[in-house]
Design a protein around this nucleic acid. Structure first.
Lengths: 334, 334
DNA sequence: ACTTGGCACTCAGGACCCAGGAGTGCCAGG
DNA sequence: CCTGGCACTCCTGGGTCCTGAGTGCCAAGT
C-alpha cells in the first residue's frame, strides 16, 4: 500500500521538516531532493500519506508536517543510525577519559550528550540491584547513631544514618562490621535481602537489637528503596525548539525524578536504541517530546539507561548515533 | 531630596508592578493605594524619581516601571522581610523533617524553596573546608587501585579512586587506614593539608610511594578541589516570568556550576539575607535576574549558602522571608 | 512653594483590510 | 499512472486607522 516512492516522500518530508521547521510542500520537495517526478505526482502521494495518518497539514493549503506516526515509520523503516564523525568519537573519548569517580562520570556523560545532540540529556545512575557489595563500613556518629557506608563494585557509594535502639560500643561495631563484610562481600545486591535474613544468628544476643536496626537499614537502602537517581542536563536546549507554552510542562516533568524514571525505565533490551515518539510517551507533559534512549553497562548486562529528550521534530538518526556511541563508551569506562 | 511621599510612591510602584507586571501610571496609583493627593502631584513625583534613575517608562506615555536602582532602594529602605505564615512554617518543618541524609536534605531544601517562592531555588552543598574529618576508609578495588572514602562530621561523604604506583597488600592497607584515621580523625579539613605533609614518616619505607599517592589524593580532594556543588530546582518557574528571549541565557547559566558558585559565593555574612539585583550581578546572562541569598549552617558559622533566583520583578519581601526561614530550619537540622 | 485641574500630545496595541504567494485538490490528457 | 493546468484556500506581512492610557506642562488655587 505504500510503494517505495511514497516512503521516499515521507523520508524527505521528515528530513526537510526537521531541518527547516517549516511545513514542506510538493514543490520544494522535488527541488531539494532529486525525485524525478512532477510536483503533482508528489501531491497525490502526499494525499495518500495523509489519509494513512503519517502527515498532516497545519491548515488548508500549507505544506505537510509529519505526525507522530510518521516519525515512527521514519525511524523504524526509513532511517538508520547515523554513526558519529571520527572527530566526535575522539571528543567523547577525551571528554570521558578524565573522570574521577562515578558521580563525575555521570555528570560528564550528561554534559557530553547534551552538547553532542543539542537536546536535553537524561542519564540514570547505574542501578544498585545489579551490582555487588564491595565493602560495608560503619562509622560511629554518637553512641546511638551510626553512619552506614556501602560501596559497590560499580564504584557507587551509598550512605545512610542508622538510629540505634540502644548504645553501642566500639568493639561491638568492629564485630558487626566484620560480620557484615564477611557475609556480604561480593554478594549481588539482589541477594542481600536473603543473606541478611540469616545474619542475626551470628551476633551475640545482647547486640541483636542494634544489629537488627543496621540490617533493616541495609535492606531498606539496597532493596526497597531503589533510589535510582536521574540526572538531567542541557535544559537550555529546549528553548530553541518552540514548544509555544508547553515548555513549562516539559521543564516541570524534567524535575520529577519519578516521572523521569518512568520515562526511561520501560522496555528496551540492552544495546538497542529505543525511540519513544510524542504521544507514545505515557508521561503527561511530555506528549510533544521524543525520547531516544538505550541501556548501558558493563559487559552484556545493562546497569541503567541514558538518552536524550527533544521535540518530536528531532534529528533521530544523529541522536540515535550519539546515544549509542556514548552508551558504549560509558560502558567501557565502568 | 526624596521626601516621604516620593518614597511611598516608589514603594507603591514596585508593589504594583510586581503584582501586575504592567507599567503603572499615576491614575491607578492613587486608586489602589490611598495616597490622598491628585494624579498630577504623583506625576510630578514620578518625574523626579525618573530623573534620579529609580524608574523608567518603557516608551513615552506608558506607565513607569522600577529600574534596578529602584528595586535596590526598595529592598534597602522601603520594605522589610515578610515573615512566613504559620502554615508555611509548619510546611517547612514537616517537609524537612523526614530527610535521610545530607543529599536528601539538600534536595528537599531545593524543592521546598522553589515551591515556597515560585522561583528558582539554588542550594550550595555544605562546604568541606569548614567541617572536620570523621572517618577515612580505604577499600581495595584491584591490587593497584583503592577507593578512598572520606566522611565528614556534617555527614558528607566524599569518594575518589586512587591509582597506585605499585601493588599493595591487605595488611599495608590496614596499616595505612590506621595511620590516616589516627592522625586525621577530628581534624578540621582546612588543617588537613599540613597534617598530611607530616604523615610519610609514619609509614614504612617500602609503602611510601603508595601512601604518597593516597595522601596526594586526599589533599587534592579536600583542599584544592573545592568541588562545592550547587543544586538547582524549580527551573520551570522561569517560564512564568517573561524573559522574552533571555530565558535561554538564564537556563544556560544555571547549568554552569562555576557560574553558580560565583553568583552565590560572594559577600554576605552569615544570617544576613543579601539581595543582588539585575545588573548588580557579575554573571553575564543573569543580568536581568535577581538573587536573594543567605548563608546557612550550624551554630554561628556559615557552612554554605542558599537562595532563590528570579526576575528582577520579584516579590522581595516574601522571597527574603522564605529564604531566611528555610536557612534557619536547615541549619537546625544539620 | 506645593498642589491641582485642564489640555494637548504621544504612542503601543488592536481591528481591519488588502494583496501576494505558497500550497493544495481536481481534472483531463498523455 | 504521471503530468500540466487551473481554480481555490488561507496564512502572512504590511499598511492604515482609531482608541485609550498615560504623560508633560501650564496657569490658577491654597
Amino acid at each position: 500500500m505504500l510503494d517505495d516512492r511514497k516512503l521516499a516522500v515521507l523520508r524527505a518530508i521528515v528530513e526537510d521538516f526537521v531541518s527547516t521547521n517549516e511545513p514542506v510542500g510538493s514543490k520544494s520537495l522535488v527541488d531539494r531532493h532529486n525525485l524525478d517526478v512532477s510536483p503533482a505526482t508528489i501531491r497525490n502521494d502526499m494525499a495518500v500519506l495523509e489519509e494513512q495518518g503519517f502527515i498532516v497539514q497545519p491548515h488548508t493549503s500549507a505544506g505537510r508536517i509529519p505526525t507522530d506516526q510518521g516519525y515512527r515509520l521514519f525511524v523504524d523503516r526509513l532511517s538508520g543510525v547515523k554513526p558519529l564523525s571520527s572527530a566526535e568519537r575522539r571528543a567523547i573519548e577525551t571528554f570521558l577519559a578524565g573522570a574521577y569517580d562515578l558521580d563525575d562520570v555521570v555528570m560528564r556523560t550528561v554534559r557530553l550528550l547534551a552538547q553532542l545532540t543539542r537536546q536535553v540529556a537524561v542519564v540514570q545512575y547505574p542501578s544498585l540491584t545489579k551490582s555487588a557489595v564491595r565493602h560495608i563500613e560503619l562509622v560511629p556518629l554518637t553512641d546511638r547513631r551510626l553512619l552506614l557506608v556501602l560501596i559497590t563494585d560499580t564504584g557507587r557509594v551509598e550512605q545512610r544514618t542508622v538510629d540505634l535502639p540502644g548504645q553501642i560500643g566500639d568493639e561491638a561495631i568492629t564485630q558487626l562490621r566484620a560480620v557484615l563484610n564477611a557475609c556480604l562481600d561480593g554478594r549481588k545486591l539482589a541477594d542481600v535481602a536473603t543473606v541478611v535474613a540469616e545474619l542475626p544468628e551470628r551476633v551475640t544476643a545482647v547486640e541483636r537489637p542494634n544489629a537488627a536496626a543496621v540490617f533493616s537499614v541495609i535492606v531498606e537502602t539496597l532493596v526497597d528503596r531503589h533510589e535510582e537517581r536521574v540526572v538531567v542536563g542541557g535544559a537550555a536546549n529546549l528553548t530553541q525548539a518552540d514548544f509555544s507554552r508547553g515548555l513549562h510542562e516539559v521543564l516541570e516533568a524534567l524535575e520529577e525524578q519519578v516521572v523521569l524514571m518512568r520515562l526511561l525505565g520501560e522496555s528496551g533490551d540492552h544495546a538497542t536504541v529505543t525511540v519513544r515518539i510524542g504521544s507514545e510517551n505515557e508521561v503527561r507533559g511530555l506528549r510533544s517530546t521524543s525520547l531516544v534512549a538505550t541501556g548501558y553497562g558493563t559487559g552484556d548486562q545493562s546497569l541503567a539507561r541514558l538518552g536524550v529528550l527533544g521535540p518530536t521534530r528531532m534529528d533521530y538518526p544523529t541522536a540515535m548515533g550519539a546515544v549509542r556511541a556514548v552508551a558504549r563508551y560509558v560502558g567501557q569506562i565502568l
